[in-house]
């Protein structure tokens, strides 16, 4: 058997033939990046390659880096290996990376979700022999409801807060989750205020042509009284801060796939948990894997052992790949 096209090393997923890494977690010379989340796009690489849609956020976060961009589906030759980026549906600009050489096709999917959120370019299955998949929600207890149903709950909660004279404070990860929630909110209920961290990302995405509802930057000098019936969106760490306290009587909500579990909902001690995730649920993961037609599945961050065991019992040739994805991002997944 020929040497594998992709290998799993201390630095991350590596292609020896093309001499490049995918989402490496230690500084390397050439890095292909699936998307701008902190556990995938890290600091210190010699050269970065990412989609044109992911690039502005990466520049914002990583500063002055050597970054080349490609469009979805555009092939690139790196040392005789053909690479291309394909929509992963995870957040705007996120990609699966297809790597081909000598008839063998590998796909590293980064983080993905298979339902269309109306904002990110929808997930496209890519046929391959070897598929590297995440498993953040790789248990049968995770099954997402249709987005419209959750949006109705979210807006009902906001409207009830507004009617009771309370500010609805919604915790959301700045890249992806925040804009998705924004698209689900009904601006007829009241104004939408955004924490600076989120507002900065909003501005970048608006610049690249994404249509988002109007928002009010919740800067230090914003007067809460000037915005009755407001919904305030903030990174999870800020929802209970002094900064949030100046918005007076309020309820806090948090949106994440983890909110499907009552225990976790209660631990976070939020008033409301909304089950909305940027990751595929159990059904979505299995569907995606099926669609690739791959025989060999490599399972990374999440419930790796259990998910792998299930895949093997269902006829795939699956194995666990230890990675350093997840951590800070995982909690807000």
């Amino acid at each position: 058997m020929a040497d594998p096209l992709l290998t799993f090393t201390e630095q991350g997923i590596y292609c020896p033939r093309g001499d490049f890494y995918i989402d490496p977690w230690r500084p390397v010379d050439r890095a292909l990046i699936t998307h701008g989340h902190a556990d995938h796009a890290r600091w210190g690489m010699g050269h970065y390659l990412a989609t044109d849609l992911a690039a502005p956020v990466m520049r914002h976060r990583l500063g002055d880096i050597s970054l080349e961009t490609v469009r979805y589906g555009e092939p690139r030759d790196i040392g005789g290996v053909t690479v291309s980026f394909h929509p992963a549906g995870h957040v705007p600009g996120s990609a699966q990376i297809r790597v081909e050489h000598g008839g063998a096709v590998w796909v590293a999917s980064g983080d993905y979700k298979v339902v269309d959120d109306g904002l990110s370019t929808p997930f496209e299955p890519v046929a391959c022999d070897h598929f590297i998949t995440e498993s953040t929600f790789g248990l049968p207890v995770f099954r997402w409801k249709p987005q419209a149903e959750v949006a109705a709950d979210l807006n009902a909660w906001w409207a009830a807060c507004a009617d009771a004279g309370q500010t609805a404070v919604l915790g959301a990860y700045a890249l992806g989750k925040a804009q998705r929630l924004l698209s689900m909110l009904d601006p007829a209920i009241g104004p939408i205020l955004c924490h600076t961290a989120i507002e900065n990302t909003n501005a970048i995405l608006r610049d690249q042509g994404l249509r988002l509802h109007d928002t009010v930057p919740a800067t230090a000098d914003v007067d809460p009284k000037a915005h009755p019936r407001a919904l305030l969106m903030a990174p999870p760490s800020a929802t209970d801060s002094k900064w949030a306290a100046k918005f007076g009587a309020r309820q806090t909500g948090f949106a994440s796939g983890w909110m499907a579990l009552r225990g976790i909902r209660r631990r976070r001690a939020q008033d409301r948990g909304f089950v909305i995730s940027d990751h595929a649920d159990w059904t979505g993961l299995l569907w995606a894997i099926e669609q690739t037609g791959a025989e060999n599945i490599y399972v990374t961050h999440g419930y790796t052992e259990i998910f792998t065991r299930y895949l093997n019992s269902a006829g795939w040739n699956a194995q666990v790949i230890p990675t350093q994805f997840g951590s800070e991002e995982e909690d807000a997944a």
Partner: peptide, 13 residues
Amino acid sequence: PLWLFEESYPIVG
């Protein structure tokens, strides 16, 4: 499969 249910149970708690 039942084993998958049993593995999920302690995680949900």
